[in-house]
Design a binder for these strands. Structure first.
Lengths: 338, 338
DNA sequence: CTGAAAGCGCTAACAA
DNA sequence: TTGTTAGCGCTTTCAG
C-alpha cells in the first residue's frame, strides 16, 4: 500500500509550483491553458485526486450534510435518503448518515455531527432539543427539519427551518372524501401524539369534519408503528358502535390497519369500512392494498430542503418554513359515490 | 455566527498548552487527572469539540465509510443502511451515502468517494469495475461487496472482500420445499442475469431439483424490479402449460408476482400456484402476502461486513469472502404437505 | 498568470 | 507527565 499522490507530487512531475496544481483544481481560478494542460497530464499519470479533507480545513466548508433518521421501517424515509443523496451529490455535496435513537432523538448524535464540520443538518423523523438547535445556530450550521416541525419555543424556533407537506390540507381532503362517500362513524388513528405531522393532519381533518356538520366518532394512537397501529385498530373496532371509516396518519400504519380489519375482524374494505392513509409510499399502490391516500411529493420536499439549506449556508438568510402541497390519490379503500 | 472554538482557545482558558488539550481528547494518551479536569472544564465552558477533519488529516484515517447503493426500492437495503450505520456509529465510524447510477455502478461515484479519504467502502446493490477495484487496493482502501460477489477476474478478484448469504443453499431449500409439497411444473424468476445472488440462488435451486429427479419447467427475468417481475410473470403463466409454482429471486419481485397471479390471472395461492421469495423483508410478513421465503439475516451480514472492513483497515489481511447461512421461513404461499 | 509563504486545527515526535 | 515543534495536504494572500 503506497500512499496517495499529493498536489506536490503532481507539481514536481509537471515542473510547476504546487499552487499551480491547486489552481487547476479550483474552479474559477486563473490558470493559463498551457499550465492547466501540463498539470492535468501529470495528475492523470499519477492518479491524483485532491484531498477533500485538507481542502475543507482551509475553506471551512466540508460539503457534507448530515442526515438524521430514527427508523427506516416506514418506506417514506428510504425514498428521502435516495432523493436527497442524489440531489446533493449533483451539487457536489454528500450525505453523512446518522441513526438516532428513538428516545433521545437527534441530541444523541449531534456531538458526532458537529465534529465532522458538516455544512448542514437535515432532520427526518428525529427531533432536536431547543438547546442544541441553539448551539447549531451558534456555530452557524443550518438545520432543517424534514416532515416535521418542532415546537421549539421563542428564539430557538427560528434556529431551524422546516419543510412539510400541507398536512392540515391533506387532513381536510380525507375528511371531505369520507363524508362525501357516505361514511358516518369516522375514526382517526394518530401517529405520535407529539409529532407535528400527526397533529396537523388531525387538526385539518377535524376542522373539515366540523365544517360538514360531522365529527370524529373515536380516535386512538399507533405511534407510527406497525404493531402499535394494529393494537389501536383492535381497540377502535372492538366497541359497541365501531367506526365505518378510519383516517390513518400514515400509510405504514394504514396497511397494518387493513390487515387487522380484513384478516382478523373479517371486514370488507371499502364496503364495511373505508380507509385513508397518508404519504403514498410505493406499497400503498400494491395490488393487495390499493390504498386511497394523501400523497406527499418527496421530490419537491427534498428540493425545498436543499433550498433551505443553501440559503442559510451561504447568506445569513433567516430560517423559514416551506409547505408543499399534497394531493388525494384515490384507489380502492374508499367506496365510490353512493 | 461566530466561529467554533479551537483547541488553542481551550488551552488559553485552561492555562495549559494546546497539546494538553489534544491529549485529553485522545483516548489512551497520558494526562494527569488534574490536567484532564482543567481542560475538560474549559472545553465545557467554550463548547469545544475537536475538529474531526483536522484530526483525520494527520492521523490519516477519516473514520468514514462509504456506502454505495443504487436503489432503495427493495426494502432489504434500507435495513442494511440502518443496521450498518448503527453498528459503525457505535464504533466511532460514520457512513457517507452514495447513490450510484444503476448503469454505471459504483464507478461513477468512486472519484468522489476517494476524495473524502474514506477508510473503507461497502458496495450494496452496486458493482465496481476491476480497474477501479484495483485502484482502491492501490490506495489501501478496503472494499467489501455486500450481498453480491463480483466476477472480478484474476488479481482484482482479491481486491475486494464480500459478504453474502449462502444463496445456493437457500435455492436448495426452496427446491426441496416445492417438490415435497407436490408442485410439479416449477418455474424460476431471476433477478438480474449477471448478479451473483440471482445466479447462485438459481444454481442451488436447479441442483436440488436435479437431485430430486425434477427440473425447472421454465424461467424468466424480472431484473429485480417490480414492473419487470410483473411482466415476467405474465409471460411465464400465459403459456399452454403454465407452472404450478415459482421460486422468485427476491421478495420484492415475489410480491409483485403475487399481485399479478391473484389479481390479474385469478389464481389462488398456494392452491393453484406456490410462491417462494428470498430475503424476508418486513413486507413478506404482511397479512395480505404472508410470503414463504428464504430469510437473509441482515444483522450477521452487517457484522460480517464490518469485520471484513476492519480486518483490512488495520492489518494487511487479504480480502476474503464470508458466507452467512440463511433459513426457510414458512408462511402461507406454499401449500401444506399433501 | 505564477510562485513563495503563511497558515486551517490538529497530532505526534521529541525534549525537558 | 508536559510543552515545543514540525508538519498532514491544501487554499489563499501577496509579490513579482
Amino acid at each position: 500500500m503506497k500512499t496517495a499522490p499529493r498536489a506536490q507530487d503532481v507539481a514536481d512531475l509537471a515542473q510547476v509550483s504546487q499552487s499551480a496544481v491547486s489552481r487547476t483544481f479550483t474552479p474559477g481560478a486563473s490558470v493559463s491553458e498551457e499550465m492547466r494542460r501540463k498539470v492535468l497530464a501529470a495528475a492523470q499519470r499519477l492518479g491524483y485526486r485532491p484531498n477533500a479533507l485538507a481542502r475543507s480545513l482551509i475553506t471551512r466548508q466540508s460539503r457534507i450534510v448530515a442526515l438524521v433518521m430514527s427508523y427506516l421501517e416506514n418506506q417514506f424515509y428510504p425514498l428521502v435518503i435516495e432523493k436527497l443523496s442524489q440531489k446533493l451529490q449533483k451539487q457536489g455535496y454528500h450525505v453523512l448518515m446518522f441513526i438516532a435513537n428513538i428516545d433521545e432523538g437527534a441530541d444523541g448524535v449531534l456531538a458526532d455531527i458537529l465534529q465532522y464540520q458538516v455544512d448542514g443538518i437535515v432532520l427526518a423523523s428525529a427531533m432536536l432539543s431547543p438547546t442544541l438547535a441553539k448551539s447549531c445556530l451558534d456555530v452557524g450550521v443550518p438545520v432543517v427539519q424534514f416532515n416535521r416541525i418542532s415546537d421549539l419555543a421563542g428564539l430557538a424556533r427560528y434556529a431551524t427551518g422546516s419543510v412539510t407537506s400541507d398536512n392540515a390540507a391533506g387532513g381536510r381532503l380525507a375528511a371531505e372524501l369520507l363524508v362525501a362517500r357516505g361514511y358516518r362513524r369516522i375514526a382517526f388513528l394518530a401517529g405520535l401524539e407529539d409529532s407535528s405531522t400527526s397533529m396537523e393532519r388531525e387538526r385539518g381533518f377535524n376542522q373539515a369534519l366540523a365544517g360538514l356538520g360531522a365529527r370524529v366518532a373515536c380516535r386512538d394512537t399507533g405511534n407510527y408503528s406497525f404493531a402499535g397501529a394494529q393494537d389501536a385498530v383492535r381497540r377502535l373496532f372492538n366497541r359497541a358502535d365501531p367506526p365505518d371509516a378510519v383516517f390513518v396518519a400514515n400509510d405504514h400504519m394504514a396497511i397494518a390497519a387493513m390487515d387487522v380489519l380484513r384478516l382478523e375482524l373479517g371486514l370488507r374494505i371499502p364496503e364495511d369500512v373505508g380507509v385513508i392513509g397518508f404519504d403514498d409510499v410505493p406499497q400503498a399502490a400494491w395490488g393487495a392494498y390499493q390504498l386511497t391516500t394523501i400523497r406527499q411529493h418527496v421530490e419537491p420536499m427534498v428540493d425545498a430542503a436543499v433550498t433551505l439549506l443553501r440559503e442559510r449556508m451561504h447568506g445569513q438568510a433567516p430560517a423559514r418554513d416551506i409547505v408543499v402541497p399534497c394531493v388525494l390519490v384515490e384507489r380502492k379503500t374508499v367506496r365510490p359515490t353512493p
